[in-house]
């Protein structure tokens, strides 16, 4: 499956993207391809530039130099609205859900469906239920329960389902399993796979090396603001990944 999707042109392509904050060069000539239908993992140590890079993709930081290609054509991302309009949805580490609202209200927040000027609760509830069922999220008992009553994994599932519901083509996830227990992590990783299998491009930022190797189709490694290596899952293992993250190069091959 991986081989197939990689033959198509990547959905998102970054060429020579740079970003500085005053004297600090956070991104230096970053090249990155994110193809549809695959999970691209972005690995790297603290301060390697992962968060800056996804904020540039989300439109929160405008880039200083370099080119961003979407479906092969250059685009400029000057604000979160630009990214959202292209179909880029970011699932943040802190989730950005409203605890006092229920699952349906959270999934549609900002894009409510209206019927004669009123909120169309029925249509929204049906669509949300369908999306959760499609993603095989079966652990929430009711889509009308408030998000405050959900577990961490369920909240993460809702945040991801929101991205699917909004028909995002690229879903960027920042440490989606950071605060989760073992069973919930497995549930969320399963969901990440489901997203890619449904044709979404997924860009996954994570510190957790075993998780990353479980779920990724491609792995890009960042170090000191550069993407030092990007390769397919088959050509990487834990030792190679650690080499790349710590020194920026490796002379090992997959055993």
């Amino acid at each position: 499956m991986t081989a197939n999707t990689l033959e198509n042109p990547p959905l998102l392509r970054l060429r020579g993207v740079s970003k500085s904050f005053g004297p600090v060069r956070a991104l230096v000539g970053v090249d990155l391809d994110v193809p549809a239908g695959a999970v691209t993992a972005l690995a790297g140590d603290n301060g390697a530039g992962k968060s800056t890079l996804i904020k540039c993709i989300a439109g929160i930081h405008p880039v200083d130099a370099g080119e961003i290609l979407w479906d092969g054509s250059p685009v400029s991302l000057r604000g979160p609205a630009d990214s959202a309009a292209l179909g880029i949805q970011t699932v943040y580490q802190d989730l950005a859900l409203c605890d006092n609202l229920d699952i349906v209200q959270n999934m549609f927040l900002g894009r409510e469906r209206l019927r004669r000027g009123q909120l169309d609760d029925v249509a929204m509830e049906q669509a949300a239920t369908r999306t959760l069922a499609d993603l095989a999220v079966t652990t929430v008992t009711s889509v009308r329960q408030s998000v405050a009553s959900l577990s961490g994994g369920q909240r993460q599932s809702v945040a991801i389902a929101k991205a699917v519901l909004w028909e995002s083509r690229l879903v960027v996830m920042d440490e989606p399993t950071a605060a989760l227990g073992v069973a919930q992590t497995a549930m969320v990783l399963e969901l990440v796979r489901t997203l890619a299998n449904r044709g979404h491009a997924v860009l996954l930022v994570t510190h957790n090396v075993p998780n990353l190797l479980d779920v990724a189709d491609r792995v890009a490694v960042m170090r000191q603001g550069r993407v030092v290596d990007a390769r397919e899952r088959a050509r990487i293992d834990q030792r190679i990944l650690v080499d790349l993250m710590t020194t920026g190069s490796t002379d090992r091959e997959v055993a």
């Binding site: 979160p80 959202a84 950005a96 859900l97 409203c98 605890d99 006092n100 609202l101 927040l109």
Partner: peptide, 15 residues
């Protein structure tokens, strides 16, 4: 309700 519950989430949702 969204602003009162989580203003940051509301802002990111474009409210």
């Amino acid at each position: 309700y969204a602003v009162g519950g989580n203003a940051e989430a509301a802002r990111r949702a474009g409210i």
